[in-house]
Design a protein around this nucleic acid. Structure first.
Length: 116
DNA sequence: GATCAGGCTCTAA
DNA sequence: ATTAGAGCCTGAT
């Protein structure tokens, strides 16, 4: 997990917080998903769901961090604003892990990871 | 669903 | 240093 830190390379975003978040995201098992708020909570940062998103947005596709396993509380991918590419990548990755996306949504009931 | 308000950080001026 | 705008959010109208 030290590599995650190095891999992070967050521009600013209080590295400490970023690291905590990344460490949590890094342990999300294959084929499972979690929400931003969940990650924040697990990282010990109750109301920082948004920060989680910000941190992840700084990651490269190349990163070993499974950022694609993090979606919003509605089970949707929170990228469809002006970012089609990111959305497609995330969706493709999830599908390749066996995570079903029905009508643009993932079922937390089936694929949700409730912590370690 | 769509909208609103709450909440917290980042960036730029 | 202060202010204002914006963001991969959430839970409640």
């Amino acid at each position: 997990m030290k590599k995650t830190v190095k891999d992070a390379r967050i521009k600013s975003a209080s590295e400490e917080l970023a690291v905590m978040i990344i460490n949590v995201v890094a342990i999300v098992p294959y084929g499972k998903v979690v929400s931003y708020g969940q990650v924040a909570a697990m990282a010990g940062l109750p109301k920082h769901a948004r920060l989680v998103g910000r941190v992840l947005s700084h990651m490269d596709e190349d990163s070993e961090i499974p950022w694609h396993r993090v979606i919003n509380s509605q089970g949707r991918i929170s990228l469809t604003r002006l970012d089609d590419h990111g959305y497609n990548v995330q969706q493709a990755r999830l599908l390749s892990e066996g995570v079903a996306i029905v009508n643009g949504k993932v079922s937390f009931k089936t694929f949700g990871w409730t912590g370690a």
